[in-house]
Design a protein around this nucleic acid. Sequence first.
DNA 1: AACGCGACCTGCGAGC
DNA 2: TGCTCGCAGGTCGCGT
Length: 323
Amino acid sequence: MPELPEVEVVRRGLVSWVRGRTITGVDVLDPRSLRRHALGPEDFAGNLEGARVLDVVRRGKFLWLPLTDSTAADRGDAGTGTAAVALMAHLGMSGQLLMQDPDVPDEKHLKVRLRLSPAEGMPEQLRFVDQRIFGGLFLTSLIPTDDGGPGGLAETPLPLIAEEASHIARDPLDPYFSFDTFYGRLRARRTGLKRALLDQGLVSGIGNIYADEALWLAKLHYARPTDTLRRADAERVLDAAREVMTDALAAGGTSFDSLYVNVNGASGYFSRSLNSYGREGQECRRCAAAGIVSLIKREQFMNRSSYTCPVCQPRPRPSRGRW
DNA sequence: AACGCGACCTGCGAGC
DNA sequence: TGCTCGCAGGTCGCGT
């Protein structure tokens, strides 16, 4: 489910419920969801119990909760306490973070339950639910960022980043995102445009859906070589990514239920607004508006599906070298 | 450096 | 009804 807009919906939903609260108990129902926590479930639980959640931070599709040291958790400054570690969450393909009351029956794919200190009118459990187990939770250190900016989007941005997310580039909606840096690195690559857009180390937050949508909006083919891509084309595809992710974020707001973080917003947004993804055999809307009949084509690329309009996103001609 | 895989998983619908 | 196949929005690590 989650690309940047979906993860941001989760972040926004989560922060008002968990910021300032203490983790009082941890139930690991399926240790496979802690695969990336090398020291095992007991270490995971032991380090979380007693720690206070300071914030919810996102970079790309990575989400983390900076924590106070569990031994120093009784300071009153929930928002400004220092943090050296964080609880990292990645939703993978099917992960959800749900706020639930204790009397709500366990979800079928409930993997980890965090019990939180009671707070007036707030659910007492944060549950990690994940059908496919590509996502997971783990603890990670917080380290200084290397560009002076904040580690990610947060209520109280700090120049610290979760170590396990430090290889992830900023996303196009991040105020500290540098187009010049992105473009320079893009031109240095000898690869295709979609592969580059999906490379979270180059630009983050874009997944298979929004890559296809951005390429469609920008009228660019996924195989367009990056090393010759003009600045205006790179700007166009990034602006397109920004546009589609901003729209999705706005629509995703409707999928957030105040009782829990609802990760079910897919149906609402996608059925209405997608122009290429999942539309194999259907008319390209832009071509149709111009009186041309062109059917969206699906192709295997990078072991996944890519959707393009053969008319307005023509495949680039094979380059034979300039000289 | 880049790429193509496989690995990690469960569940759904289509087709037989 | 039950089987197999292909498919699903991600990331990591290996070999070439």
